[in-house]
């Protein structure tokens, strides 16, 4: 088992220690002194320079490990390929579209997909991509032209650093259907079932595109009050959240006096 330096979270503090990464298990040395079989892992989350590993039948053991990307990549690969998860061999392209811009050099990669408790992992020889289920914004069973043939694919949109990222998965239709059904079920909370009137839809589209309130008011010729009412509707439907509340003010007599004095010419 190869030993590597890491930091582990223990009693709310990050403790420097060493970790062994083996073929079928990992070991965390002092202060945890634990050996964990990859097959007992039920969830894996990746954050910047750290991973959160959940193991045990009830997910009762949680390990937070920080290290350099190279170490984490090896660890993640062992976990993704052996953990207790729904796994399938597939081709994937991620990201294929970012923020609405098609990535022209995006390639199909041959690898595996592991569906874990909180996210879907794509893993290939070169890449490890995680899509947290809570960040999924759309799933579609669609077709795509690949080597001059129209093939069925699952298209997954998710939010990553405030950008909408689109990924594609390609595998046999029966497996695609299983994956699609699973994702639909796992992300049912964010499905939109209510009707949205066209104006509110346009406002939502402009917010998505990054327009601020004054730009939206100008573009759609809306008053401040009208836009507020539409925002309330979007908030009520759970389609938007308040980023910040901006104040509109008018000057007091003191403020007016200040301005009047500021603009007086030195001759007066």
């Amino acid at each position: 088992m190869k030993s590597v330096p890491v930091k582990v979270e223990h009693e709310g503090k990050w403790i420097p220690t060493t970790m062994g990464i083996g073929e079928d298990r990992f070991r965390i040395d002092t202060p945890l002194e634990r050996e964990v079989l990859y097959k007992s892992v039920v969830d894996l989350e990746a954050k910047k320079n750290q991973v959160v590993i959940t193991a045990g039948a009830e997910g009762e053991f949680i390990y937070r490990i920080a290290s350099v990307e190279k170490v984490l990549a090896v660890l993640k690969k062992f976990i993704i390929t052996q953990a207790s998860a729904y796994r399938l061999n597939a081709f994937f392209m991620s990201p294929a579209i970012r923020g609405g811009v098609l990535i022209q050099n995006a390639q199909w990669e041959k690898g595996a997909i592991a569906v874990m408790k909180t996210g879907i992992w794509f893993v290939s020889q070169e890449n490890q991509v995680c899509i947290p289920l809570e960040d999924v914004t759309g799933i579609e069973l669609t077709s795509r032209e690949i080597q001059e043939k129209d093939l069925d694919v699952v298209k997954i949109d998710h939010l990553s650093e405030n950008e909408v990222v689109t990924s594609f998965v390609l595998c046999p239709m029966t497996t695609l259907q299983v994956l699609y059904n699973f994702l639909k079920e796992a992300t049912r909370d964010t499905e939109v079932n209510e009707e949205i009137d066209p104006l509110a839809g346009q406002v939502a589209m402009l917010v998505y595109s990054g327009m601020d309130s004054s730009a939206i008011e100008n573009m759609l010729k809306l008053s401040h009050k009208d836009l507020d009412a539409i925002y309330e509707k979007l908030l009520g439907m759970g389609l938007a959240e308040v980023l910040y509340v901006r104040k509109e003010v008018q000057l007091t007599p003191k403020g007016v006096r200040y301005i009047s004095e500021t603009v007086k010419s030195p001759m007066e």
């Binding site: 923020g99 811009v101 022209q104 950008e163 998505y208 990054g210």
Partner: peptide, 25 residues
């Protein structure tokens, strides 16, 4: 998106997909 190949073949330099986000555009 299937139109991409045709557009690129016809000389398009880039491709954006609606809905899009301002910074990426």
């Amino acid at each position: 998106e299937q139109m991409v190949k045709l557009a690129v073949k016809s000389g398009a330099r880039g491709y954006i997909v609606k809905p899009f986000q301002a910074p990426k555009v």
